[in-house]
Amino acid sequence: MAAGGDHGSPDSYRSPLASRYASPEMCFVFSDRYKFRTWRQLWLWLAEAEQTLGLPITDEQIQEMKSNLENIDFKMAAEEEKRLRHDVMAHVHTFGHCCPKAAGIIHLGATSCYVGDNTDLIILRNALDLLLPKLARVISRLADFAKERASLPTLGFTHFQPAQLTTVGKRCCLWIQDLCMDLQNLKRVRDDLRFRGVKGTTGTQASFLQLFEGDDHKVEQLDKMVTEKAGFKRAFIITGQTYTRKVDIEVLSVLASLGASVHKICTDIRLLANLKEMEEPFEKQQIGSSAMPYKRNPMRSERCCSLARHLMTLVMDPLQTASVQWFERTLDDSANRRICLAEAFLTADTILNTLQNISEGLVVYPKVIERRIRQELPFMATENIIMAMVKAGGSRQDCHEKIRVLSQQAASVVKQEGGDNDLIERIQVDAYFSPIHSQLDHLLDPSSFTGRASQQVQRFLEEEVYPLLKPYESVMKVKAELCL
């Protein structure tokens, strides 16, 4: 049975990233139509530049190519590739079939990587351009969430054990800070992308030097003109047959890092959902379990974690691919890159769409948070109580021993009897502590235990987050809708 299948058929496997999760716009960027249309555009740009620099290419040939950029006979191309065992030459023939007058000058002087690699770089750039505003929107939604809850005390956790208090907004800023680093890295790697350009079979530009009869300047002009037509500021000066596969490492490393950030955020949300302090959106008709109707599973956060793990592992592909590119190139890269580049971007696209949807509907339960604080705060307040007693004339050592005994009794009630923490009640009825009984409410005010959390939130948002989001103001209103 021949390899390949009808990918629109229910009898043929289709990647869930495309069929179930990723956005239509990201799927289109990695589609065959987008790819092969870009090949034709690159052939047109090459012909236009070659004509401008004096090669015998007519206006009629150029116009014929322009008129057929979208006229792609995919069936013919597939048949040609089956016959020739070469995808680029299959599309040269297919393009030439609908451009008979231009057929002889299509791909003039070029090698397969002229269309293959340059198209990949265009796709990487455009895919990054799709991700950047999506990530900015996630940051914006979380920034709104953090600002609104900047002063809401909550129990902090280290080692997932109760620690000092923080605020809900401050905790959210930990998430935002990681995503801001990801946004900066995505922008950097996007701006650092260079075009492969017009380089020939081993990167020496020998074929173009021959076409222009040894004119170095025209060869350099050709490279520059096509690079500018493709919208790049610069091209690699040095290439082998391909652009260095280190570029793929750079791009997928940034995406993998984004995956790590999203995994951490969504894990926190899942843990908070278990504590009943916070939940992701839950639709009115949504079913959490087929057997347990009360369940409210954090399905979206779980999906993000599941896909983020996949995204983090994909960076190993370009690392290994770059390491086995012998001399000017081997074909070890080809099949692998067809999979890992598309999957990385479709996965990143999915987790950003999902995280935006989550961040637009996060639900906080202040009463649950308050109750958990009441359970733990008495123990945390013991040092403040000791200091207040010393100020009232008591002995630190005597007070410490009193607190120690009462704390152990209260802990026994919590752990052995399943009761509430009654340390404060014990202190309130103990005559030894009568000098500070009137101060206990103040000493137990949760806001006095959150330090500068709310001020940190305000400063972080104003100095770091809002300036970073400013270039994306025009796209901030787009909502994230999930079908599944």
Rank of each mutant, 00 (worst) to 15 (best):
T58C: 03
C113A: 05
V168R: 05
L155T: 01
V247Y: 10
S112H: 01
L183A: 06
V168S: 06
L272K: 04
G169R: 02
G54N: 06
F212W: 14
L44S: 12
L222T: 05
E64A: 08
G8I: 10
V138H: 10
E302M: 05
I238L: 08
V198Q: 10
K147F: 07
E81V: 01
T347G: 11
D182K: 04
L258Q: 11
R338K: 04
G214T: 08
A2F: 14
V457Q: 02
N336G: 09
S395Y: 05
R404C: 10
A49T: 05
L46H: 05
V414P: 10
P318M: 01
S454T: 14
K479L: 15
F379Y: 04
F36P: 02
E302G: 02
V88G: 06
K402M: 11
L179Q: 03
F449S: 06
K170F: 08
E370F: 14
D317K: 01
K295L: 02
D6M: 14
F379A: 02
D216M: 09
P100K: 06
G231F: 03
F345M: 10
N126K: 07
A78I: 14
D73K: 03
H217M: 05
E70G: 08
T52V: 06
Q397E: 14
I139Q: 03
I386Y: 05
E481R: 13
P281G: 00
D87W: 11
H310S: 08
L193G: 08
Q61S: 06
V324I: 09
A22R: 10
K170G: 05
E220I: 15
L155Q: 04
L53K: 00
Q221G: 13
V390R: 03
S359V: 14
K66F: 12
C340Y: 15
S290Q: 01
G203C: 00
I287D: 00
R452F: 12
N274D: 15
W45C: 04
A163E: 07
S15A: 15
Q320W: 09
A260D: 04
Q409C: 10
E250D: 11
G394E: 11
L444E: 04
G197Y: 01
D11T: 04
C305R: 03
E279R: 03
G4K: 14
S207D: 02
Q221W: 13
L377P: 02
C172H: 09
I123E: 07
I424L: 11
I105A: 13
A235V: 10
R14K: 15
A381W: 03
S334T: 07
P378L: 04
T450I: 14
R300H: 14
P366A: 06
Y34W: 11
L152E: 06
D223Y: 03
I358E: 01
D430K: 04
Q285D: 04
L440Y: 13
C99I: 07
K295W: 01
V429E: 13
A49G: 12
D422P: 12
N384S: 07
G4Q: 15
S447M: 10
I249V: 12
L130N: 06
I351V: 10
V254A: 08
E50Q: 02
T58S: 07
K229T: 05
R404E: 03
A256M: 09
V478H: 10
A110T: 11
C399G: 08
L468M: 09
T111N: 07
K170V: 02
L84Y: 09
E80R: 12
P24R: 13
L423N: 07
V324D: 06
L142P: 01
Y472I: 15
Q184H: 13
G4P: 13
D120H: 08
E302C: 06
Q416G: 11
N118E: 04
A230I: 15
G394D: 09
A431F: 03
G451C: 05
A256K: 00
Y114P: 01
A388Q: 01
Q456T: 08
A291P: 01
K470A: 13
I403P: 03
L186W: 13
E464L: 08
E220Q: 05
L469Q: 06
G4I: 15
T313P: 11
P378Y: 04
N353R: 11
L53I: 10
E228A: 12
Y243R: 06
N384I: 12
T330I: 05
G5C: 08
L209R: 11
R149F: 14
I351D: 03
T313I: 04
E79I: 09
A77E: 09
K415M: 10
D430T: 15
V115L: 10
T52H: 08
G231T: 11
R234P: 00
F157L: 06
V465S: 04
E481I: 11
A322S: 08
R372V: 02
V478I: 07
T167Y: 00
T330Q: 00
A431S: 06
A146S: 02
T204D: 10
A49L: 03
E148I: 09
K264W: 02
R137W: 08
H437V: 02
G231E: 12
K479T: 13
P100D: 06
A308E: 02
T330E: 01
R194P: 14
K391M: 13
P16H: 15
V138N: 08
R296V: 07
G419I: 07
G418D: 01
E370D: 15
I72S: 05
S257T: 11
Q184W: 12
E79R: 14
F236K: 05
T158D: 00
A291R: 02
E376S: 00
K147Y: 13
L355P: 03
Q51Y: 07
R270V: 00
L346W: 09
L124D: 03
S23L: 09
T94F: 02
K35L: 08
S412C: 08
L108E: 03
R149G: 09
R196D: 12
K264T: 03
C172E: 02
P298Y: 03
G214P: 12
F30L: 10
M299Q: 05
K82E: 08
Q409T: 11
R125D: 10
A235T: 09
A206C: 02
E343G: 13
L252T: 12
P467Y: 07
Q285E: 06
F282E: 08
L121Y: 07
I269D: 01
K147G: 11
A381C: 04
D248M: 01
Q456V: 10
Y294V: 03
D191Q: 15
L209P: 05
S407T: 09
E481P: 13
L307C: 15
V475H: 15
L362A: 13
E80L: 02
A77L: 09
C180I: 14
R137T: 10
R338L: 03
S9E: 13
A2Q: 13
A291M: 01
T321F: 04
Q177N: 14
S19Q: 10
D223S: 03
L211Q: 15
R245H: 00
A230P: 00
T267H: 07
A480G: 12
M292F: 06
I436N: 05
V368W: 02
S23G: 07
K246E: 04
D59A: 07
L132R: 13
K470F: 07
Q241I: 00
L186T: 13
T313M: 10
K367L: 03
S290I: 02
D248P: 05
E250G: 12
I351K: 00
D129S: 10
E213S: 08
H7R: 14
Q41K: 12
C266M: 13
G8D: 12
I62P: 00
R426I: 06
L341V: 05
G200D: 00
S12G: 14
S207I: 12
G393W: 05
N297T: 08
F30K: 00
A260Y: 06
L440N: 15
V475S: 15
D441W: 04
S9N: 13
